[in-house]
Amino acid sequence: MLGNPSVRRRTLLAAAAGIAAAPFAARPAFAANPKVYLDPGHGGTDPGAVANGLQEKALTLNIALQIRNILQANYAVDVRMSRTTDATVSLAQRTDDANAWGATIFVSVHINSGGGTGFESYRYLTSDAATVNLHNALHSRVLSGMRTAGSVTDRGLKTANFHVLRESNMPAVLTENLFIDTVSDANLLKSAAFLTATAQGHANGIAAHLGLSAPPPSFSTIVDNTTAGRFTASANWGTSTFSGQRYGADYRFANPVLASDAAWFKVNIPATANYRVDVWHAADPGYSASAPHVVVTAGGNQTVNLDQRTGGGAWRSLGTFNLAAGDYNAVGVSRWTSAAGYVIADAVRVTRV
């Protein structure tokens, strides 16, 4: 809560008249992972605004912890917080810590008071393009997130001489997430679903500003030689339970010949993307020293030869391949090899990466 202007000057701004705006320091270049600094307002001996059975310091910590968890679970990003517990942290400690860490962006989370209603957000009085971009990305997405869980008034994007905006050396935005002393707003702030929606909106805005992409949907499937409708092989392929290294009930084997006669594993690929292809086979000194495995990629067939005399009873990687979407014979084991010994076809695993 930054409350009315006079309270804000006393508690968070140090915006004394006549103080010239500090020049912006050079923005840190993005590291391998962008660094997001989250600042839950108040804490410890400073409860912030208190009304309707709520304390600002508890609400801001709840929201900020959820923002951190969402970011860490979904993006390649480093997150640091000014506090993760009910601790007393001065304004100078917050900005000094963010500056020393070399944060890419700074986001301060607050709850408003003063008898109004709705959501508003702030950047510094004079801001560069990166700060304006962060402000726009955050404001629109936080508001959208909130509105999935309740009716919220948009109080607009604003500027102010707040300490955390003025003294940070990176793009910085402060959000005021409803009014704790307005009953209708307080009722929303008492809703766990609303707080989660607010956190998600912050995370969405941060990700949009930084150009972060969520990891692809997870996908991994195993096709065994006994999987109904997913394995085909000619009568030249026998069935064996000889080796205890088999995957499942049995495995298939065939003599090498100078003809393909492949055993095929049919895989339903959900989207054109990169996939790791692993195979499982039993191993024996009498098996093939160079068993051809054919992977049907988006750019054409690729063949990988495996020595099946060793390494059995475990998943072995053929590599990572770009596979086209569709339900088709994606991995085959061919008999076309000059190496002596049985060629083995047992199971394949395809995993999106």
Rank of each mutant, 00 (worst) to 15 (best):
H163D: 14
A325L: 10
P171Y: 02
V89W: 07
F30K: 15
L212R: 07
G311I: 09
N69K: 08
N52G: 12
F265Y: 01
T84M: 09
N112M: 12
F106K: 03
P292C: 02
W101Q: 09
T148L: 01
A347S: 14
R10N: 11
T84K: 09
S317K: 07
W280Q: 00
A15G: 15
A263I: 00
I222C: 04
K57Q: 11
D278G: 00
G150H: 01
F119R: 02
A214R: 15
L38G: 01
D181M: 04
D96S: 11
Y122I: 09
F231K: 05
F265P: 00
Q308L: 10
F179D: 00
A20S: 12
I63F: 05
A14D: 14
A20E: 10
I269E: 01
A58T: 15
R147A: 00
P28H: 05
L2N: 12
S338V: 13
M81Y: 10
R316K: 14
N62M: 07
K158V: 13
N112I: 11
S144W: 04
R246H: 08
N62T: 14
Y75C: 03
A282L: 03
A197N: 01
I105Y: 10
G244D: 14
M81L: 15
I105W: 13
L134Q: 08
G145I: 00
N133S: 15
F194V: 05
P215I: 10
D307K: 01
F24C: 09
T198L: 06
L188G: 07
A20H: 08
A192R: 05
I70V: 13
T175Y: 01
A207P: 06
N329G: 03
A76Q: 13
R335I: 05
S144Y: 09
D327C: 04
A203H: 05
V279T: 03
W280T: 00
T153F: 04
T272A: 05
K158S: 14
N74E: 06
V142D: 02
Y75E: 02
D39M: 12
A87S: 15
S220A: 12
G286V: 13
I180R: 00
T351P: 03
N33A: 15
L143N: 01
L38R: 08
T320F: 02
Y124L: 11
N4L: 12
A324P: 06
S213Y: 10
G118R: 01
I70D: 09
G41M: 03
L59S: 06
V343H: 05
A15E: 13
R27G: 07
T272R: 01
N204V: 01
A340F: 12
S140N: 14
A20R: 12
L2E: 12
S184Q: 10
A283L: 08
A203C: 05
N161E: 15
S213A: 15
V152P: 05
T175R: 02
T182L: 04
D86Y: 05
P216A: 13
L59M: 09
